[in-house]
Design a protein around this nucleic acid. Structure first.
Lengths: 340, 340
DNA sequence: TCACGAAATGTGAACGGTCACAATCGCTGT
DNA sequence: ACAGCGATTGTGACCGTTCACATTTCGTGA
């Protein structure tokens, strides 16, 4: 049916050209939707492409265009729900925009590991990087390696030239804190995340701001590692004093661990201790009791990440993308007025 | 300090060659660890590379070698713990082996979506594909598009030429079922996963096999969608009859939902209903009560995936990689003898 | 000292696209 | 009928690497 072809090799743009009776450049134009192509020509070329199952070679394209159309994601704890959802959303959004995504996981958070991961990304000539990791350290390494691709984080680092997405995590944390205060709690404890995660720092800041604004005295937060296990052990420790009536955990997993510890101590939630989480992972509604938490729209986050990053790559004004995402408080059974 | 260079363009292999006073090919040899390079020459070249911060251009490399060194992951529900951990492990293992990973997420499980995702992967000339998704359908599409790259799945499809990794999920499911039977349960219900997921099918098969082997009568399982929400609703439905004393859920999230429904009904776990999950997500130990479940070593899974896939790409005998991973039963508080 | 073969290095052509520029086609108005 | 111009198509070089095939260098034994 079709004309003979060199076998053992994927068809190239010139194979298509020959069979369609046009020049290779015309085929290229068809592929790139160049405006001045006669419809009949275009149809003929497309038909040959179809027949040959031709696919443009990405490497060749990247080489001659000088652009990889790839962005890198630097991720830590990528199997946790929050990061994982953002990554998925980032991939979807990138694909939508015709970009490819490559993820490098941090095996640990030390400098060497970060360096290795960044290196891996740079080797693929990524055009930009999304950081979902302990950002402060990552940036140090970025600078140290004098790497100069645009990057995006999920929250401002306060550094100059940082292209950050504004999720108003401070606001989210204030919502959670305010909820507890409104219920009548005055002794509220905060289990924070690792402080080199900007998100963790922002949530803690929000907590402290709201407590300050409402004139409630605070104690120093504990810094956790995002895991339920840590929440459990921190909870056990805290319960030895029991000088609080509510705990605000900076993510849902740690909140789950705390709930475990509270039950172990024979106490009731929310009568003896109210608990608020952050993220609203899909499981949170099924905890016992269902967890009051702050919902983040991870998918929207991912989309905006890509919009901002691609915008930056294209040289647009980053401020165009600065509109903050406002998280939402979801009240469930884990919070109530203090018993006294 | 360093000699002058064309600016505005990343240094190429020829720039390095010129400054080192060798031919571009020699530089290439240094980069690829060719054996016959004089040590002194190698050192000189490496020094220039260092000075110039030279990085080989991946596109050019892929083009001339005809190999992308990229593998694709086709993933559904990529934000769930199980898949997410496997993906992370796959990325790590691939990176270790000098490969890059590109993930395409399924937005839905219909054919069009699968086709789009596969297409995206093929456009990057992936050398192999790992499927973490409803595999049966994916393979239909793979065949339909007459795509011919090696692929790996997490469980045998029973089709000829399938390169599957053997995680003995059947065995894992039998362990869970046997545990319940040994405790004295005779009316055991199974909440299965979507049946076009091979894992789900295998777990169900294991359940049925063990029930049959022990001569315990079974009722038809319900097919769920892996989510806690589904587990909750299925649980409510099931509890209207309450003709069982134990439930084996094919993953931990659905088990959590069931636990929620059981508590809503005012029943006690495990006194009134025993519950077993599958996966051992990190949160499972902190559920209320802590969940008895079957642990899968997702990281090992990911590593083996890559080993098998790269082996297949290199033309090795896939049987070399067939040694099954044996899951492990983790007994916690959610199971106990039936009350009667 | 010289031939000889292996080790070390160099040369030029791919790889498969895109880019810049040139050439041709086809229509319009006079 | 023909100049003029935009629409359409073609030509050859180039992107940065590796490949296949020279060529040169060097150590060794006769």
């Amino acid at each position: 049916m079709t004309a003979e072809l060199p076998t053992g090799r994927a068809p190239s743009i010139r194979d298509v050209a020959r069979l369609a009776g046009v020049s290779h450049q015309t085929v290229s134009r068809v592929l790139n939707n160049h405006p001045s192509i006669r419809d009949s020509t275009k149809a003929r070329v497309l038909q040959v492409i179809e027949e040959l199952q031709y696919r443009p070679n990405r490497a060749a394209r990247a080489l001659s265009r000088g652009r990889s159309r790839t962005i890198g994601v630097l991720s830590a704890s990528g199997s946790q729900y929050g990061p994982a959802s953002s990554i998925a959303a980032i991939q979807d959004a990138a694909r939508e925009a015709g970009y490819y995504v490559n993820t490098a996981n941090l095996t640990s958070v030390d400098t060497a590991s970060i360096e290795a991961a960044l290196d891996h990304l740079m080797y693929q000539s990524v055009e930009g990087i999304v950081v979902i990791a302990p950002q402060v350290r990552v940036f140090d390494v970025l600078e140290q390696l004098s790497i100069e691709v645009p990057y995006v984080t999920l929250q401002s680092t306060g550094r100059p030239n940082d292209h950050a997405l504004s999720v108003d995590q401070i606001h989210g944390a204030r919502l959670a804190t305010r909820h507890l205060i409104d219920l009548g709690h005055r002794r509220i404890f905060h289990l924070a995340g690792p402080q080199d995660w900007i998100e963790a720092e922002a949530r803690m800041r929000g907590f402290l701001e709201e407590m300050g604004a409402m004139d409630v005295p605070t104690t120093a937060p504990i810094l956790g590692d995002w895991t339920a296990d840590f929440g459990y052990h921190a909870g056990r420790e805290l319960l030895r004093q029991r000088d609080f009536t509510a705990i605000f955990s900076s993510n849902d997993q740690m909140a789950l661990g705390i709930m475990h510890a509270v039950r172990d101590a024979g106490l009731d939630i929310p009568r003896d201790v109210s608990i608020v989480g952050f993220d609203d992972i899909p499981e949170a509604a099924h905890f016992w009791p269902p967890l009051t938490t702050v919902r983040q729209d991870f998918a929207e986050l991912g989309r905006r990440c890509i919009a901002l990053l691609l915008g930056t790559i294209a040289g647009e004004d980053p401020d165009k993308f600065r509109e903050a995402i406002i998280p939402e408080l979801i009240v469930r059974g884990s919070t109530g007025p203090p018993a006294f």
